[in-house]
């Protein structure tokens, strides 16, 4: 027995055992994936195509074709508006957040006094700006009144107004000016949503080998040139990652999510709610596909 036991276990090769262990390690996830993701996903698609009636015996599902989709797009009063609104805010915010967090990451990567403290403060939004706190913050009345009392609003309003005038006189297109001043006015929203992106960029910048910078300095490149010729191409894969992350992150808190939930759990119209969710999903995947395609053409990979 003592002899055969090791023999039996060694019958499988190391790589075979690795494969078996690999499957075992992935198994919990796989079960969850099947029960809590794939089956519900298919069910949700089925719901979106059917009439659902709930009574004491449970729910009755009858096939109804594209009726729910038609209803969401043509009959429901708020769906179209909410969908375009939440998607346009997403499209407006994503470039701002990505550019801002890249800029901040470069800034926080430099050596200066109190860098650790500054980093600790800038990662704080990862904790604070999530979920319910974010929602309630926008409704705080005391804060709004205090802002105007302190005269802060008048000053900042004036600031961005003058800036806008200056840029329009300099011949910058009005849409661009509106976009930029809008960004200045929404600075808190942007800062608070760029915590994770900042982390990713910072980690990426630190993997760039310092020799590149040393060599470019020898050749006489300025810091500005070094940024565009070294830092930017080297972190460009992460720009893609961050764009995708920012788009996904906007799922968790927006009006569309609220509308889908209200239709499902307050009006108990499961079919319509599922149809809305699928339209939303398709719209978002379309944006993801387009942006991934556009960015990945410009992305620089080392190999």
């Amino acid at each position: 027995m003592k002899l055969t036991a090791p023999l039996r276990t060694s019958r499988r090769t190391y790589s075979q055992r690795k494969a078996i262990y690999g499957f075992l390690y992935v198994l919990p996830w796989l079960l969850g994936f099947l029960f809590f993701f794939l089956v519900p996903l298919i069910a949700s698609f089925r719901f979106s195509m059917s009439n659902i009636e709930a009574n004491s015996n449970g729910i009755i599902i009858t096939y109804a074709g594209f009726k729910n989709y038609v209803e969401a797009l043509t009959v429901n009063t708020s769906f179209n508006r909410t969908l375009t609104e939440s998607i346009s805010t997403m499209v407006v915010n994503v470039p701002l957040i990505v550019i801002f967090s890249l800029f901040l990451a470069v800034l926080l990567n430099q050596k200066f006094l109190g860098r650790t403290a500054a980093r600790a403060v800038f990662f704080l939004p990862v904790i604070l700006a999530s979920g319910v706190i974010m929602n309630l913050e926008s409704t705080s009345l005391v804060q709004a009144v205090n802002d105007s009392n302190a005269g802060g609003k008048a000053v900042s309003g004036l600031g961005s107004f003058e800036l806008a005038q200056l840029m329009i006189q300099a011949g910058v297109s009005e849409t661009i000016v509106d976009y930029l001043t809008g960004a200045v006015d929404r600075i808190y929203q942007i800062v608070s949503q760029s915590g994770v992106q900042l982390l990713i960029f910072l980690a990426g910048i630190q993997t760039i080998s310092p020799q590149l910078y040393e060599a470019s300095k020898m050749e006489g490149a300025t810091g500005y040139e070094a940024f565009w010729k070294i830092t930017f191409p080297m972190v460009s894969p992460l720009i893609l990652v961050n764009v995708v992350y920012t788009i996904i992150d906007s799922f968790s808190t927006n009006d569309m999510t609220d509308l889908i939930r209200e239709t499902g759990f307050e009006a108990f119209n499961f079919g319509l709610s599922s149809a809305m969710a699928w339209i939303y999903f398709l719209a978002v995947s379309l944006i993801l596909l387009i942006s991934t395609y556009l960015i990945s053409k410009k992305v620089f990979y080392q190999n």
Binding site: G22, F37, I248, F251, G264, A277, Y280, S285
Partner: peptide
């Protein structure tokens, strides 16, 4: 296992609202 990893990416990409109702009923 690479195919299954695509599944992980899919769980990241699908908004949780899409599968909310079936999970709830389940």
């Amino acid at each position: 296992s690479n195919l299954l990893f695509m599944g992980v990416m899919l769980t990241i990409l699908v908004p949780p609202t899409t599968i909310l109702i079936p999970v709830y009923l389940n």
